[in-house]
Design a protein around this nucleic acid. Structure first.
Length: 451
RNA sequence: GACCCGUUCGUCUAGCGGUUAGGACACCGCCCUUUCACGGCGGUAACACGGGUUCAAGUCCCGUACGGGUCGCCA
């Protein structure tokens, strides 16, 4: 039987890292085994579900490249894929429970009678977990009063208003859609015995369960929308690459068990399995996520880099059509971790006036004989017959020799004079791109500034 | 509070009875170098605690502590 996994988001907010990571593991597992990944929308709560939220989630999954074989927009043999449209199916399954005497009415709602015995979940990640629902459910913790109260252990599966409830529809759809592996966050582990009881009452063989550890924020508490790195659409805006985000998410709870950490999606698909999934929660580390992105950035082809950096360049006023852009981008590869950091590295090439960094200027001003160095440099470059990297280096070297200093002594003044900063792209290639007249103009301007 | 799950450097992790406890991010130092990066080399840094089992325990068992989760007519 072919593996069928599903991601079942509830469209009540953004796509956050935890959900995306769950989707990724489902996707990877299905693809690894040549199976199908299904997207199902759990929108039974009409009050909280919104179309906007659904769109954000769909966009996020699409951006990550986690394409679904069945679900919204692509259809499939087991639709509809929105639970809000599956009422008839649920009615049919409810009738089964009624026929079996498993349910009863309570104040207009329908409750499922939980069995009074130990139910054992056999989980791919957590192992065997046993619980007695009757015992567990017969007391409820009141968060207001901090007291335990008597409670009805039987679970509500249908509201008085006719709407069905998560536990029931989740199980029915997993049966109906032929889901073979339920991969979800560990927050659902405690719900699983309920689901198992439902599968049994419906006469269905339950799928295999895998409850993956949760991703927490750096404080060790639940990720909230406000935590850095929590929302997928923000990764896109910050200049992350989809595959880098996937790579990092995969690493949060899974390991290839060798020392590799940078993987393409194809490699991930190839390597992912549950023996590599660990069972303790992890804390999100934004720095490492950025590092992973930097690694992916460096592996990009020239064409990919240009295409992906384009929006970020134009956003910061660098004309994408400028024919110096492709060459300039090559200078940014090792100096940026995020696409959004790229413009700053090369911005000076495209600006008509140099914006001088005070600290950088101070560093140069403090040097001995700075005006002499600058004029030698300027003259040397002005007299250079050609303007490629070799000739420029030769010109600077000769200028240095002329005034009895080492070439290195002229490089920093040159960099600050031309680029305004001590950091940024490689100096000589920048001089090439800027052109001889502009370089001379900037150096003269800098010399005047220092006077 | 009850129940469930977990606990290796600050963080992500490898380890599946015998290891100088390995790697990565971050941090520090050195090298390379025209700056900044990249890269290279090196460093600081971990088995939560207490009992067992065993010739031998980070690895197995039991407690404790701590963390997380669940306890909705939310999903």
């Amino acid at each position: 039987m072919s593996v069928r996994t599903r991601f079942a988001p509830s469209p009540t907010g953004f796509l956050h890292i935890g959900g995306a990571r769950t989707a990724l593991y489902n996707w990877l597992y299905a693809k690894h085994h040549g199976g199908q990944f299904i997207l199902r929308v759990e929108d039974t709560d009409a009050e909280r579900s919104t179309a906007e939220s659904m769109q954000v989630i769909l966009d996020g999954l699409q951006w990550l490249g986690l394409d679904w074989d069945e679900g919204p927009g692509v259809g499939g043999d087991f639709g509809p894929y929105n639970q809000s449209e599956r009422g008839e199916i649920y009615d049919r399954y409810l009738a089964k429970l009624e026929a079996g005497g498993y349910v009863y009415e309570d104040d207009g709602a329908i409750r499922f009678r939980v069995p009074d015995r130990t139910i054992t979940v056999n989980d791919l990640v957590c192992g065997e977990v046993s619980v007695n629902l009757k015992e567990q459910g017969s007391r409820r913790y009141n968060t207001e009063t901090k007291q335990e109260e008597e409670a009805n252990p039987d679970i509500v599966i249908k509201r008085p208003n006719g709407g069905y409830i998560f536990h029931f529809v989740n199980v029915v759809d997993d049966i109906e859609m032929g889901i073979t592996h339920v991969i979800r966050g560990e927050d659902h582990l405690s719900n699983t015995p309920k689901h198992l009881a439902l599968f049994e009452a419906l006469g269905a063989t339950p799928p295999t369960f895998a409850h993956i550890p949760l991703n927490l924020n750096p404080n060790g508490t639940k990720m909230s929308k406000r935590d850095q790195g929590a929302l997928i659409h923000e990764y896109q805006e910050s200049g992350f690459l989809p595959d880098a985000v996937n790579n990092y998410m995969a690493l949060l709870g899974w390991s290839a068990k060798d020392d590799r950490e940078i993987f393409s999606m194809a490699e991930l698909k190839d390597l992912f399995d549950f023996d590599g999934v660990n069972n303790s929660n992890s804390k999100f580390d934004y720095d490492k996520c950025k590092w992973v992105n930097g690694e992916h950035l460096r592996h990009l082809s020239n064409g990919e880099l240009q295409e992906l950096a384009g929006p970020f360049l134009s956003r910061s006023g660098i004309p994408a059509a400028d024919d110096r852009v492709p060459a300039a981008l090559q200078l940014t590869r090792e100096r940026a971790q995020l696409l959004s950091e790229i413009p700053a590295v090369i911005a000076t090439i495209f600006e008509s006036e140099v914006s001088y960094d005070d600290a950088a200027v101070a560093k140069v001003t403090g040097q001995d004989d700075i005006q002499n160095k600058l004029s030698a440099l300027t003259a040397g470059l002005a007299n250079s017959s050609g303007w490629d990297e070799v000739e420029i280096k030769a010109a600077i070297s000769a200028a240095a020799e002329g005034i009895g200093v080492k070439m290195g002594a002229l490089m920093l003044p040159c960099r600050v004079g031309v680029m305004g900063s001590t950091s940024g792209a490689d100096l000589v290639p920048v001089l090439v791109l800027l052109g001889q007249p502009e370089v001379i103009r900037r150096l003269k301007g800098f010399s005047a500034l220092l006077d």
